[in-house]
Structures are given as C-alpha cells and as structure tokens.
Design a protein around this nucleic acid. Structure first.
Lengths: 362, 362
DNA sequence: TCAGAAACATTCAGATTCGAACAACGGAGG
DNA sequence: CCTCCGTTGTTCGAATCTGAATGTTTCTGA
C-alpha cells in the first residue's frame, strides 16, 4: 500500500468508536493512536462536535451531554420535520432504500426515525404504534406486510393521525378513506419484462420463473411475466413458487426438482427472484456440472449480491436508492403543503445489469 | 486478451469489492489497480456515491457512513434550463396544467417555451421539431396524440436529442429504447372509480358512462369503469362513445338517443366525460323536464366549468396543476442528474368535488 | 493569587487532490 | 459506411488536507 494513513472520515469513526468505548477521549492519546498531529485530532473533534456527536472539553471530548455549554450552532435551523420509517428488514434490500431516504432527508433538512420490523403485520403494527405514541414523528414511511387482510391493514394505516406513504408496497387500487393512500414503489413487473426481453434477445425461447415464496413482490413479478410472455408469444407456464435460499432445509432437493422440470420442458433460461436464491441455484448447477450460461442462463432479481457470483450474474436492479429518496421528498411535500396536495403514486423503473450469466447462445 | 480494460460497470463492481474488503479505498491505488486514470476512478466513485453505495472522501472513498457531513450544496450554480412544452390545446383543460408548470418553473428558476398544437400527430411533430431545431430547449414536456401508431410516435419521440417527459399520456408499457420513457398523468381510471362509488353510495345501481369520442383519456375512463362496476357487481354495459358537445351539429339528437337508451335500461345516473358535454346533457334535460338529480344524477369529468351549471354539477377534478408542476420538477431532476437517474412514472389522484347534481335519492 | 505547564486557536505553507474544459477514442445504431 | 453518443484521458487552476510556528487561553498546584 502506498499509504497507510486513514481518511478523515475513518478517523472520525475511530474517534467515535473510542469515545463510545471509553466514554471520554484525550487529544494526546488519540493523536498517538491515530498517528496524526494533535492539531488534526482537534479539528476532527471540532467537526464531530459541530454535528452534536460529542461534546468538546478541555483536553479531549466526551459523549454528548446537554449539560455542556450551549455550543453556538451556526448550522441550519433544527430539522423541520421528523419522519418515521418502518422497514421489514435491515439487512437485505432495504438498506439501500434507507440510505437513499437518509440522503434526501439530509438534503431537505429533515430527520428520520428508523425502525426495523419483520415481514409480519403484528410486528409492523407494534412498531408503528410506538412511533405514533412517542409523538415525535409528523409523517410515516411504511412498508407493511399486506398479505392476508390487506384491506383491514390499509384501513388501520389510513386512520393514523399522520400522513403515510407506502414504500415498495401497493395497496388495493381504491380505499375507503377520503384521501387515497400514496405510494412509491419499483415497477417490478417492468423489471421482469426487461429480464425476459433480454433473454429473448439472446435467443432463449423457453424460460422459467422462480419466485420467492411469500415475498410481497411476487405478485408483481408474476404479472409482468404473464404480460411479457404473452406479448412475445412464448410459453409462460413454467413458474415456480419455492424458496430455495441456502438457509432453507432441503433447498437442494427443491432446486433439483425445479431443474428437473426445466429439463423436461426444454427450458434454457431462468429468472430467479432474489439474488441469494439465484446464488443457491447457480451453486447447485456448478456442483452438478450444469454450465452457466451455456446450459442454463440465469437472470437474478434484486441485484444485491449478484456481482459476487461466479460467473457474475446478470440481474435486475430495482432503483432502491431513488425509491427511498423519492419517498422522503414526497413526504416533505405532503407535510409542507398539507391535505390540499392531491395524492400521487410513483413507479420507478428498474435497470437491467447485464453480466455473464446470460451471455448469448452460440 | 486483446483488451484487458473493463466496462464501466465491471469497474464499479471491482471498486465495491475492494471497498468491502478494505473498508476504504484510495483513488491513486485504484487507478493503478484498475489500469485507468485517476479521473476515471473519481468519476466511478462519484457515481457510486450518488447511489449511496459508498461515501466519498478527500483522496478516496469509504463504506457508507452517516458521519459524513451532509453533501454541501453545490454553489449557486444556477442551472438555467429552458424546457419546451407542447400541449394539444390552450383553451380547455390544459391551461391549468400549464399554469402549474409555470409556477414550478418560476420556483425552480427555469424557463418554459410553450407551444400549442392540436390533437393531431402531424402538427405535434411539426411543433416539436421546431422547438428542437431552435436549439433553445434542454428538455421537452409533451402531450402528443398517441392514437394510431403509438409505437412509431414513441420511437420518434425517444430518438429526440433531449429528454422527454409525457404529460397526461401513457405510452405502451415497454419501449425499445434504452431508457424507458417517463410520464406524469392523472389516474383517470381511479377518477371514474371515485365517481361511480360515490353514485353507488347514493343508492344508484344502474349507471351509464358517456365518453367523449376520440379523447385520449377515454381508454382510461373505460378501464376504470369496467373495473369498478365489476368490483361493485353492477352492470357495466351502458357505455356511449359519442361527442355531445354543443358545437357538434345534431348533438341534441345524440343526447336524445342516449337518454332514450338510459330510460330503457332503467339508468338513474350518468358519468359524462368532459364538462361541456355534461353541460349539454344537463341543458337538454332541463328543456325536456328531466329533473337533475331526481330523475337523473350526473357526474361530470374534468371540472373545468362544472360549477357553472345549474344545478352545480358534481365533478371529478383531475389534479391538473399538480400534474404540470410535477412534470417540471421531474424534468429538472432529469436534467440535473442526467441519464443515471432511473426513470419514474407518476400517477396523480383526481379528486371528487361533490355538488348538487348527484344528491342522494330520496 | 500567581507562575508554569499544558492545551488551544490562528495563520501560513506545502503537498495532494479535485473538477471543469477540451480532445481523442471506440461502440452502437442508422 | 458513417454519424452520434458515451466514455476515457490530459491539462491546469482551484480547493482541501495536514502540520509547523506562534501567540493565547485554561488548568493545576504552590
């Protein structure tokens, strides 16, 4: 390595780490620890103090405290709004959305209260209720589970005392409420269409679709599948609804069955919902000597880890960051303009990232 | 290998790989590692940072972190765009959209070049071509006639050298072009649904729909009609496609025929596309002694002049101003962020303005 | 209360990095 | 085959980061 110095931002993180661990840090110690001059450490501390992440004291810094003398803040005024955000997962798919939302929030000067939930409606309600009861949020970005009695859940949501925007969810077309629910979501049907048309361009005529069982997006994927297969005049019958994620017991058997049926149907290409499932299939294929893409072309859906596969997998990438950002922008518009503003529903178009797993047939 | 350079996308992935492995990357190292210039690496990093996949720091990049100071607003680099706008009419429906667009343009500091056209595709092309040739506009808001060969028109439009957003128009779901066409439109299908459900709430069970022949929105209205009648379990068969505008010769005869068929079918309520047509029907009813709303309830569609009728007419009001405004905002985002921004499609929800012509039955 | 030591703020300079403008190249599509 | 468009590279002035020097403030203990 040409240089083992750290970037300013990394130093900031180390400072915060040290601070959280020790409760207080000294400039001199940090300078030695980080291998920079004391002046630099002071500058770091000043920058962090400006963000209220710590409190500057003579000789070092401590965790933020209200007791400290009111640092004269010259930054922009306090956040205009606080927006609650409840997402069903904090480790797959959603981090990109959250990060887009945070970026937009920072740009617009609003705060976000993030809550992780699960893909379970009871947990969703509990998290939402807590946010409401704390009386801290003026608006909510939600991605609730709408399986089961969607109407009832939507009714409950639309009776909440603050405006709500659904993220990556679409409620029934019409709701009893006076103000139609707003939503922002990726156009997954179009995403599948992009994938299928790409495979069709590559010469594939017998395709299969493997849907992640129980995922809220499955319905959209299936819709897009039927539409595009109809338009292209190719058989649309080979649709599986199985989770073949590696952490499922017996996932290898399931994959074997799927591949058997593909072989029987002369299928040469698969669209697989969720990268990890596609990974699992690819891995099984490698073990069985099924070559990708020669024997079976694969397009993954989500593009979370598709580039890590070998061969790198072609994938449909929903515009997650833009979805998060747009959600926040819509919410700010709603909060600023009030009920007068008519509702909007926004679809964002996914992108097809072409890699190696869908190479043209010879 | 004749060329070991990678495509931009592959480079992005290598950057992310390296980043995940090391936690931070240095521009200089990456440039050497990837065999490209530092500037290229910087551009890659900027692109990835725009997707919030990493945080840009002086000298390189780190994994995304919240500690980063909010990206400082680029100076008053006033992006003075000029946006061309071609609308099919300057005296009905469109003035409200244009005025919303103008308001947004003023707020965003951009200029609008407005051109009136007609509901005719040849005239549309002529106006668009002129705007392009003048080299004055950086983007176009269009509402072309898409009847007839829509695909051909869309192809032509998407080959224009500037970004295009369709206003109150929806092209076929998928287009051959690399970048899917963007649009902003009112959800007229939902508008009809609001009207029908309102009439249903008032006790009406036999409804009719009178569509303005040749209007581009008719298709959406018919779709919404079929859907909602199906959901409510009421007959959806009584749909007329006739223009009964007062300036049509013989419009009275047409109205008489429509009303005859309504009487025969036991219809007690009509949804009429376009206010002027609804006015004409209401006037004819007044002359014939058909009482509104006792004998026939009417909901007009468009809400341009519905409040002037006697009795004042209930009407569906598409959110015209917001459509215009959103179009401009989307265009400015597109021009500011370039092609990297994924396409969006926006539906805005109409509002039902309840007046006297749809009063409850006794 | 005062002196000395430590910590801090400010200024300046050097090195590095950044980004805009323009040129060159190569692929995609007509 | 050609043109157009997007990508990449080069140059150069501007911006940023870092640390040394220097003067000022704060802390500590007698």
């Amino acid at each position: 390595m040409s240089d083992d110095r750290l970037f300013g931002l990394q130093r900031h993180e180390r400072v915060m780490d040290e601070l959280r661990r020790e409760g207080a840090v000294r400039v001199k110690d940090l300078a030695e620890l980080l291998g920079v001059s004391e002046l630099t450490v002071r500058r770091d501390i000043a920058a962090l103090a400006a963000q209220n992440l710590l409190t500057k004291v003579h000789g070092g810094a401590t965790l933020p405290t209200e007791l400290a003398p009111p640092a004269r803040r010259r930054g922009p005024a306090a956040p205009r709004f606080t927006i609650g955000m409840v997402v069903p997962s904090l480790d797959y798919y959603w981090p990109a959305i959250v990060s887009g939302a945070r970026a937009a929030a920072a740009a617009l000067g609003v705060a976000i209260q993030l809550r992780g939930s699960s893909y379970d409606w009871a947990e969703d309600r509990r998290q939402i209720s807590r946010l409401i009861e704390a009386q801290q949020v003026q608006g909510l970005l939600l991605a609730p589970n709408l399986e089961g009695d969607a109407g009832e859940m939507i009714d409950w949501i639309s009776r909440l005392p603050v405006p709500v925007i659904l993220v990556e969810r679409q409620p029934p077309r019409w709701t009893r409420t006076k103000y139609q629910v707003e939503w922002v979501r990726s156009d997954h049907a179009l995403g599948v269409e992009l994938a299928v048309r790409h495979l069709h361009d590559q010469g594939h005529r017998h395709l299969g679709l493997l849907l992640s069982k129980g995922s809220p997006t499955s319905a959209h994927l299936a819709t897009g599948w039927d539409t595009v297969c109809g338009d292209l005049g190719i058989p649309a019958g080979l649709v599986f609804r199985e989770s073949v994620n590696m952490d499922r017991p017996g996932h290898r058997d399931t994959i074997a069955q799927v591949l058997d049926r593909c072989r029987a149907a002369g299928t040469t290409a698969l669209v697989i919902h969720s990268d990890p499932d596609a990974m699992a299939v690819a891995q099984y294929c490698a073990e069985q000597g099924i070559r990708i893409p020669e024997d079976l072309a694969i397009v993954a859906y989500d593009d979370e880890i598709a580039q890590l596969a070998d061969p790198a997998m072609t994938a449909v990438r929903p515009p997650k960051s833009l979805v998060g950002r747009t959600s926040v922008e819509q919410m700010v518009a709603r909060l600023t303009e009030g009920r007068r503003r008519p509702s909007q529903r926004i679809l964002t178009v996914p992108e097809l990232i072409i890699r190696d797993s869908s190479m043209a047939l010879r």
